[in-house]
Design a binder for these strands. Structure first.
Lengths: 348, 348
DNA sequence: AACAAAAAAGTTACCGATAAAGTAAATCTG
DNA sequence: CAGATTTACTTTATCGGTAACTTTTTTGTT
């Protein structure tokens, strides 16, 4: 056996495949085959090579490997708007689990709803030849759109259902979920209603829910006394003080609809602290079926969304697309209304 | 000008630097220089090259670039235990912001406290030649330890303060934070105490807090009637039903100390629903100063930890190390006790 | 104008793996 | 057992950039 690769690395350098091959007395190529578990080597050779891999502590340089096989990496770019929002961390968790178990790595972008930031991040991530992208939302800058279309990389747009996705889509129909809650509220006899949410311009899906809810309320003959949109993050505290502000300017509502459960919990706490009874004096409805619901004095009326499953499904679709298996362009993971006990059944 | 690189890509292929160079009438090297904004090109050439970059829609192949300059990537592996736990999403947010603004990308691992999973992930991530790693916790498998030591990659261990880190460390002293709360509770005259938390074996830092708290209570002459450890995630619901279980078996406590604020909020809601007054009938103390505090009927007695800053600091230390700037091996971001109004000042 | 120095390019080699193609050794087959 | 086939390897070329070095052109100086 001839050894044609006998240059040795300078002491401190990382062990390369050539070092392993040299030590095992085979060619780089044979060592490569053993490591990739293809064919073309004997049992004896395999053992020899793996022995040396272990002894030398060889770790593959996947930068080189991926590059060499003019291939893609195992990175999947994942963009979500906000880590402070439980729904997105749940979605992310679903994505991460599925990706990891399939041998992919999530490269994270937390956009804070900044489309320009997403654009820049996408350009960077694409330069790493990712296996795919999962992006929250459907509104992209023209440049983003162009990059994604010409990138030659599978893309899943998640969160909003989107009948004409760039590539693939996994989400729910936010408009419909708002409509369902509007119908439910009006159906129970609540007619003077209010909405409390946060900056709509950037939170596209919350705006869609609001529109759906509004349409249902109007279709059902109810009226929206006021919709209060805060410049804040949609959490407990915004719900609390948003409700305070709302009721100061507009005290005679039957029920309030919130952007999500955490805000609704804040609202519930506020009205409780003011000795208002829920639902007798005021009704409360949220969105998302978030963990806080477990500790509220009454089961919160809300919309359940399978966030974890949504994330898993998105990752699954992506992996199907990568591996050439059949997949659906659009997946609706659905929602359902959780009736709860925070909405009364009639006007006061 | 001579053109020495005139092979053209097959139609569908991605545009390479050679294509750009050819189109601009310069060598690959000159084009590379322009794109990396180094020196050695004229203004006229720069404009020409950038024109072609834009026209052809060239996107750099960083796999090749990083590989070629026997260099590292701009990836930073980030491992956290759980996305369902707000403290870690806050830390992650701090990390992500800092990394992104410095041109690095976070490659995420959500370990679910599984050391073996972390080990495998680290091996994979190292194979991508990351610029650095940020890992939650200080307990590693022997293999992990070996990989990190021989990896030649800067590593920041976060969360637990660690006077002898593998490389760098950013965190707080969990034991001390528990001790501080124990002192505070006993100092206010609470002597019959209870603890409610979740599976300690995997949540090392919570266990450290418990030990510190226990020591303070004993040092102060108080006694721990019972510590209730649940097999569940440390959230609202676990706090709620954990308190129910606790009080069933042990009803005469002065105050309860919880693993975190979300559990404390659950406990608070439970005791409130049982018509117990806080703090007159029972005291409640949490940890973490989490958002839920904003909507509780009384300011919760807790420990504030600057999670976002912890994350940012970790990323900052890492980047300093990468760029050769001076950095501290160990950074203690500190905590402080928030007195609140959920602890009474004497036995009943 | 002659020469030195600086700026603007071009050329070559190479990073570490794998694809593709070639060669030697082992196995099968009639 | 010769020839065909399979298996076990080796060799060479190459992916797309960049480092290091070399050459050409421009600019500056007396």
């Amino acid at each position: 056996m001839k050894k044609n690769e006998d240059r040795k690395k300078r002491g401190s350098e990382r062990v390369s495949l050539a070092d392993v091959a040299l030590a095992a007395g085979v060619s780089k190529m044979t060592a490569s085959r053993v490591l990739n578990n293809t064919t073309g080597f004997s049992d004896k050779t395999r053992v020899r090579v793996l022995e040396e891999v272990k002894r030398l502590g060889y770790v593959q340089n996947r930068l080189a490997a991926a590059f060499s096989s003019h291939g893609k990496s195992t990175f999947v770019g994942v963009s979500i708007p906000d880590l402070g929002n439980e729904v997105f961390t749940q979605v992310l968790e679903g994505i991460e689990r599925k990706l990891n178990s399939a041998g992919y790595q999530a490269v994270l972008c937390v956009s804070q709803y900044d489309h320009k930031a997403i654009e820049e991040w996408i350009e960077t991530v694409l330069s790493w030849q990712p296996a795919g992208l999962i992006i929250t939302g459907r509104n992209h800058t023209p440049t983003t759109r162009k990059l994604l279309k010409s990138g030659g990389v599978p893309v899943v747009e998640i969160w909003d259902l989107n009948s004409a996705p760039l590539d693939m889509n996994v989400g729910i129909n936010h408009y419909d979920s708002g409509y369902a809650m509007g119908q439910h509220m009006v159906g129970l006899g609540n007619s003077r209603l209010g909405y409390i949410g946060t900056h709509h311009d950037s939170a596209h899906s919350a705006a869609a829910r609001f529109r759906g809810w509004k349409a249902a309320v109007e279709d059902g003959g109810g009226s929206i006394l006021h919709s209060h949109v805060l410049q804040d993050t949609p959490g407990f505290y915004a719900g609390y003080y948003g409700t305070e502000q709302f009721l100061k300017s507009c005290g005679d509502v039957d029920a309030l609809y919130y952007q999500n459960d955490n805000m609704a919990a804040g609202g519930l706490m506020f009205v409780t602290s003011k000795q208002l009874r829920v639902p007798e004096d005021i009704g409360i409805a949220g969105w998302g079926d978030l963990p806080v619901g477990a500790i509220l004095p009454k089961r919160l009326t809300t919309i359940h969304v399978p966030n974890l499953r949504l994330g898993q499904k998105a990752a699954e679709q992506l992996m199907r697309s990568i591996s050439g298996e059949p997949f659906a362009d659009v997946v609706d993971v659905g929602f359902h209304l959780v009736p709860g006990r925070t909405l009364g059944d009639g006007p006061r």
